[in-house]
Amino acid sequence: MRNTFYFIKESIRIFRNNKLSNIFSFLGTALILFLLALVIAVWSISSRLTVMLREEAEISAYFDRDAGNTEELLNLIGQIDGVREVRLVDKEEARSRMEKILGEESGILDLFDENPFEAYFEVKIHLDRMDSVFTQISALKGINYVRENREALEQIEGISKALEVLGYLVIAAVSITTLVIISHMIRQGIYQNHEQIRTLMLLGAPDGFINFPYILLGFMLTFGGGVAATILINTLIHQGYGMLGSTIPFIPLPPKSQLMYGLSIFLLSVSAALGILGSLFGVSTSKKRN
């Protein structure tokens, strides 16, 4: 492009004219975008958790101890609409599952002379069919008692929803703040250079030529902030995964590289877009005489 060097030099000059404010708006943008990335990271982890937990929606159906027709019941349950999978968990498996959950405390089970657990049907279902499946299984002959885990699932889902709403709010807040900061810096730069701009107008320079260095500066400040935020969040994720992985291993984290890649793309494109929008806004709201 023609005048590339000129435009870059002009941008640097405008930056230098107001160095401190420009540096602070760069740092501010970087930190704001970093906070945004943080919220998005937590949100994406929790929504992934929700998706996985949805698949864990299940009903435990206990049956008459002396009912000999478990095979038949198994078939009947399997045919119910909304059931994904059904299998019989026998007494031994029920006990060994509890041992796993209790971990070191499992010695407590040795206090029982006899295995205190009962066999049951483990029915994996689609969460949104929970109600109908639940009533249909309850109505089956030979089924004593039915239990579901919906409440826990819905709580976690609620948290994830709340995080999503929070995410949108933070995106809105970050966008507005960044736009205000950048457009203000641009207006300030234009105001400080109004004599030069006036001369260029008198020489017939088109608005695009006059404004470009300011737009370039606004873009560089915001995009630079985006790059800094990307480096910060990637470092944090890199370190955080190591720590989380060893302390709470059962949280199903999304693959590290996928999260880092997604967040980087997101931050870079959001900061680029905000930079251009903010500068254009600043330029278009500056007062100029022809």
Binding site: R2, N3, R13, Q196, R198, T199, L200, L203, A205, F209
Partner: peptide, 29 residues
């Protein structure tokens, strides 16, 4: 104005630039 060569009574040079750059700034666009 792009077809006009103005010489202002108060010059209107752009400060902080060299003489050559000032002349160039009238032509870059």
């Amino acid at each position: 104005r792009r077809s006009i060569g103005p010489v202002f009574q108060e010059f209107r040079l752009i400060q902080g630039r060299t003489a050559l750059e000032n002349v160039l700034m009238g032509m870059r666009f």
